[in-house]
Simulated scan of single mutants.
Amino acid sequence: MEEKLMRAVQYSRYGGGPSGLEHVEVPIPTPNKDEILVKVEAASLNPFDWKVQKGILWPLFPSKFPQIPGNDVAGEVIKVGPGVKKFKAGDKVVAMITPGIGGGLAEYAVSKESLTVARPPEVSAAHGAPLPVAGLTAHQAVTESAGVNLDGSGKHKNILIIAASGGVGHYAVQLAKLGNTHVTATCGARNMEIVKSLGADEVLDYKTPDGAALRSPSGRKYDVVIYCAAGIPWSTFEPNLSENGKVIDITPVPTALFGYALRMLSKKKLVPMLLKPKGENLDFLVNLVREGKLKTIIDSKYPLSKAEDAWTKSIEGHATGKIIVEP
């Protein structure tokens, strides 16, 4: 019997950027035990995707070549593997594909049942697809690393969110404001009103002197900084932190390990954060979107045939919210 094929985008070596992506036809994957085959309606790009291609995460990722990138998808269940109990063909879902395995930039993708959640009619594929990586990273940073209770209880915290108009940042602002917090945010001048509309109490243009120095307009010291960028030295953070303040670095790199260790010895800390995805947290985020308590800002949408353009946009690093690819 002839094998059914699907359109996909892949790369076969490290490097190459957008021009290293190849449009191919490959066999539709088969779901194994506890896995689900999803017809992709929307996929979301993350910096993780092009960093893997660049070789920044070698030798951990990718697990193999050729690599179909993409870890965030929303779509419809086509088939379930042995042992799957929660889903059946026809169900609408949001899913995170195991990092390193990938497969999101394709017409079909396989996800694990444990990292797949139901998508209600109120949540479109484009607005649900970005939640697995960016949404879960923001959720973990705000709740676990920053210790914010999203029911509004707990001690008041002053929080700074850097790059607040980006993929993780725009979710982090909204989630932090569900808690007992005062949120200061940094972004570019063109996005200041958007970030204010998400609930930020104070917004700094990162290109101004106060923005570059991370100084709160109201003179607050930060209990927590959610650091969604790169290139800011500790000497800029330190004077803005409260006595036991900490900086949560959501994109840690191996070369910074000595800095983390050094800071752990002081009251003011620099703490690396690695995403530990949980299905129950993804389900929580999807329901916040359904209830209108969490918004996905979509920067742009591209068809799969123009995946290179989406890749370029992500590498440039100035997207407002999330970049979506639709097969």
Results as ranks from 00 to 15, higher is better:
residue 1 M to E: 08
residue 11 Y to D: 09
residue 12 S to E: 09
residue 25 E to P: 07
residue 30 T to D: 07
residue 42 A to G: 07
residue 42 A to V: 11
residue 46 N to P: 13
residue 46 N to V: 08
residue 48 F to I: 12
residue 48 F to R: 07
residue 49 D to P: 05
residue 57 L to G: 02
residue 67 Q to S: 13
residue 71 N to K: 06
residue 74 A to I: 09
residue 76 E to T: 15
residue 76 E to H: 11
residue 80 V to Q: 02
residue 87 F to V: 02
residue 87 F to N: 01
residue 89 A to F: 04
residue 92 K to N: 15
residue 95 A to Q: 02
residue 95 A to Y: 03
residue 101 I to H: 15
residue 107 E to V: 08
residue 118 A to C: 05
residue 121 P to I: 08
residue 122 E to T: 11
residue 123 V to G: 01
residue 128 G to W: 03
residue 130 P to Q: 09
residue 131 L to W: 00
residue 135 G to L: 06
residue 136 L to H: 04
residue 138 A to G: 08
residue 139 H to E: 04
residue 141 A to N: 00
residue 143 T to A: 09
residue 144 E to L: 13
residue 147 G to N: 04
residue 149 N to S: 08
residue 150 L to F: 07
residue 152 G to R: 15
residue 157 K to A: 06
residue 158 N to K: 10
residue 162 I to G: 00
residue 162 I to P: 03
residue 170 H to F: 03
residue 175 L to I: 05
residue 175 L to S: 01
residue 177 K to S: 01
residue 177 K to L: 03
residue 180 N to Q: 03
residue 180 N to A: 02
residue 181 T to P: 08
residue 181 T to C: 14
residue 189 A to Y: 10
residue 195 V to A: 06
residue 198 L to W: 14
residue 206 Y to S: 04
residue 209 P to L: 04
residue 215 R to F: 04
residue 216 S to E: 01
residue 217 P to Q: 06
residue 220 R to H: 15
residue 221 K to F: 02
residue 221 K to H: 12
residue 222 Y to M: 02
residue 223 D to S: 04
residue 224 V to S: 05
residue 225 V to P: 09
residue 227 Y to N: 14
residue 231 G to Q: 13
residue 232 I to H: 11
residue 233 P to V: 07
residue 235 S to D: 13
residue 236 T to V: 14
residue 237 F to S: 07
residue 239 P to N: 12
residue 243 E to A: 12
residue 244 N to T: 14
residue 244 N to W: 12
residue 247 V to H: 02
residue 251 T to H: 08
residue 251 T to W: 04
residue 253 V to S: 07
residue 260 Y to M: 01
residue 261 A to W: 09
residue 263 R to L: 01
residue 264 M to L: 00
residue 267 K to T: 01
residue 267 K to A: 01
residue 268 K to E: 00
residue 270 L to D: 00
residue 276 K to I: 13
residue 276 K to Y: 05
residue 278 K to T: 05
residue 279 G to Y: 01
residue 279 G to L: 11
residue 281 N to A: 05
residue 281 N to W: 09
residue 281 N to E: 11
residue 282 L to S: 01
residue 290 R to Q: 03
residue 293 K to T: 02
residue 295 K to C: 00
residue 295 K to P: 00
residue 308 E to P: 07
residue 313 K to D: 11
residue 314 S to Q: 15
residue 315 I to Q: 13
residue 315 I to S: 13
residue 315 I to M: 15
residue 316 E to R: 10
residue 316 E to A: 14
residue 318 H to F: 07
residue 319 A to R: 11
residue 321 G to E: 00
residue 326 E to W: 10
residue 327 P to E: 13
